[in-house]
């Protein structure tokens, strides 16, 4: 049944993402074509070239921000419509457990979020590499050799890179569950369900911020940053090494938050369902 839920979630969302991915691709291509004539000589772009490069960078940031927000918007609307509106009469009478229902939605939502992120990163790399922005002559170092150095030179720094990737993925899942949790709490009220969902989200966010601060993740990073060495490569490796323990802490905290969101979502949908 989990597979069927996943299938239905894809069926219910793919059209929105087809539009979103197409619009983002067209916007990036248009941006690239618009700016190209002004950046023909990247080594000495001139004032006009520099201005256009900055405009392109800002435009890319705005477009990417809009694009990156799409999965959140689509997933929140999808969850709300299918589980807490009258559609819930169908959803919650399917021969599917609450766990499979939440997991199915979570898997599809996370996959769209991941695909969107990877696509935005790929667009950034293609767009800026195609303009030779990362030319070693221009930025003073060879980016590929920096990455290679991190991988080979220091196992702790490399482990941190992996931890950051894992942490980002868990944070992404946790963020989706946070919305589910807020909507599940909000629907349990008799009236103003949307308002109570928003209030629940804000409440959860405040509680989690306090808990996160109590664990002192940011403080640890600040203290560790004082150990930088002057050389750029060494600074980078130092940052990564300094972030090793905070990254682990972040993963543990995010996993704990995600588990709490999941348990609350499950509890409210299973025991406090209030379809009007």
């Amino acid at each position: 049944m989990l597979g069927k839920i996943i299938k239905q979630e894809f069926k219910g969302t793919w059209k929105f993402f087809a539009v979103s991915f197409s619009a983002f691709t067209l916007a990036v291509i248009a941006l690239r074509l618009t700016v190209e004539p002004y950046m023909s000589n990247i080594n000495s772009p001139g004032i006009l070239g520099t201005v256009f490069f900055i405009i392109m960078l800002l435009a890319f940031i705005v477009i990417t921000a809009l694009f990156s927000f799409t999965p959140t918007l689509v997933n929140v609307i999808r969850f709300y419509k299918t589980t807490v509106t009258t559609r819930g009469y169908l959803t919650h009478t399917l021969p599917v457990s609450t766990d499979k229902l939440i997991l199915g939605k979570l898997i599809v939502a996370s996959l769209w979020q991941l695909l969107t992120t990877l696509y935005a990163v790929a667009a950034f790399v293609i767009l800026f590499f195609s303009l030779n922005i990362f030319d070693p002559y221009l930025i003073g170092y060879d980016l590929t050799s920096v990455i290679g150095r991190i991988i080979t030179a220091d196992s702790k720094a490399f482990a941190t890179v992996i931890l950051i990737i894992v942490s980002s993925f868990i944070t992404m899942i946790s963020a989706v569950l946070k919305f589910y949790c807020a909507m599940s709490i909000g629907q349990s009220f008799n009236k103003n369900k949307v308002l109570f969902s928003i209030l629940a989200y804000l409440g959860i966010h405040i509680i989690c911020s306090i808990v996160g601060t109590c664990f002192g993740v940011s403080t640890t990073i600040t203290l560790q940053l004082n150990t930088f060495t002057p050389q750029m490569m060494e600074i980078l490796i130092s940052i990564l090494k300094a972030f090793f323990m905070p990254a682990i802490k972040l993963i543990v905290i995010d996993l704990a938050f995600a588990a709490a969101y999941y348990i609350l979502t499950r509890h409210f949908l299973k025991n406090k369902l209030n379809l009007s």
Binding site: K81, T86, L90, P95
Partner: peptide, 18 residues
């Protein structure tokens, strides 16, 4: 449970179509 939902056919008094 999900097992009984497989054998119970429910018609709510609400329209659930999109």
């Amino acid at each position: 449970s999900e097992k009984t939902k497989a054998i119970v056919s429910f018609l709510p008094d609400k329209d659930y179509f999109s």
